[in-house]
C-alpha cells in the first residue's frame, strides 16, 4: 500500500466574468501524496488556497490543471477529471468532506443528517440511526437536540454535526476544512479524538486548519502554503517545532 492519493500540478485559476474576466490564481502546481491511514495537514495564511485544494479534490471546484489520482478498491480515479457520475458514486461510498460551514436543509433533524451518511454507504435503514446517534453522542451533542435541525444549533454544535456527517460510515478519504474552527477547547479535543479514531479505522485525512495546536496533535505531515504555492512539507510535530524555533 503505497499511496491513497497522488496530487500533481494542481492549479486553480478563477475567471471572474462579472469583473471583466479578471483571473485570480487560487493555487498553483500543488503536489503531494497521501498514504493510507495518514493525516496530512495543509497550512498557510488566509487566501493561500488551502480550501480551494480540498474543493478541487471534492469537485465543488473545477481545477484548471493537474491530476489527483485516488486509489479506490475498483481502480484509480483522477478526481479532477472523472465523470460526474463517478464523483457522485465516490462521494456516496468513500470520500467525505467537512466544509467550512454546515449547509443543510432546515427541516431535517441532526440525527437524520448524520444517518444519511451511513445510509448512502449501504448501512441498513434500521441500523443507520443508531450509528448516527452514537456519533452525535460521542461528539457531545445533547440528545435533546438530535431531533432538531442543525440550523438552529450554535456555531460549535453545527460544526460538530458537520464533522459527524462527513465521518458517518467511515470514508476511506476524508477532506476536512477547518474542522475545529469555532469550537471551544473541550469540543476541539472531542473532534480531535474522533479524527484519530477515524485514522485508526483506516481513514486517510487531508485537513486544512489555522489551528496550530490541532496540527500538533493529529497530523502526520504538513504541507505549508504561501500565496498559492507550496513552501515546505514535513512531519507535523517536527514542522511545529521548526516553526516555533524561528
Amino acid at each position: 500500500m503505497g499511496e491513497l492519493l497522488r496530487v500533481t500540478g494542481l492549479t486553480k485559476v478563477f475567471k471572474l466574468h462579472l469583473l471583466g474576466g479578471r483571473e485570480v490564481v487560487a493555487c498553483r502546481d500543488i503536489e503531494f501524496v497521501l498514504r493510507p491511514g495518514e493525516i496530512l495537514g495543509i497550512q498557510g495564511p488566509s487566501g493561500a488556497g488551502k480550501s480551494t485544494i480540498l474543493k478541487c479534490l471534492y469537485r465543488t471546484c473545477l481545477a484548471t490543471a493537474g491530476q489527483a489520482w485516488h486509489r479506490s478498491p475498483d481502480g484509480s480515479v483522477d478526481l479532477l477529471q472523472a465523470p460526474a457520475q463517478t464523483i457522485l458514486a465516490l462521494r456516496r461510498s468513500e470520500i467525505g468532506y467537512v466544509s467550512q460551514f454546515l449547509r443543510v436543509v432546515p427541516r431535517v433533524s441532526a440525527l437524520q443528517v448524520v444517518a444519511e451518511g451511513f445510509l448512502c454507504k449501504g448501512w441498513r435503514e434500521s441500523r443507520a440511526p443508531q450509528e448516527a446517534a452514537r456519533l452525535l453522542e460521542h461528539l457531545k451533542i445533547p440528545a435533546d437536540l438530535w431531533e432538531a435541525s442543525p440550523c438552529t444549533f450554535s456555531g460549535g454544535e453545527q460544526q460538530r454535526v458537520n464533522v459527524a456527517r462527513a465521518s458517518a460510515g467511515w470514508p476511506r478519504l476524508l477532506l476536512m476544512d477547518e474542522p475545529t474552527a469555532s469550537l471551544d477547547q473541550e469540543s476541539k479535543r472531542t473532534v480531535q479524538e474522533l479524527i484519530l479514531e477515524l485514522k485508526r479505522r483506516g481513514t486517510s485525512i487531508v485537513v486544512v486548519s489555522h489551528d496550530r495546536h490541532t496540527f500538533n496533535q493529529i497530523t502526520d505531515r504538513v504541507l505549508h502554503l504561501n500565496r498559492g504555492a507550496e513552501v515546505r512539507a514535513g512531519r507535523g510535530r517536527e514542522y511545529a517545532k521548526a516553526a516555533a524555533d524561528h
Binding site: A89, L90, G122, W123, R124, E131, R134, L194, E197, R201
Partner: peptide, 18 residues
C-alpha cells in the same frame, strides 16, 4: 465511542458505487 466495526455492518444493500 463504541462504534460497530465496519466489517460487521450489513452491506447487502450496498450499491455499486462505480
Amino acid at each position: 465511542l463504541e462504534i460497530t466495526d465496519v466489517s460487521s455492518c450489513d452491506l447487502s444493500g450496498r450499491q455499486d458505487h462505480r
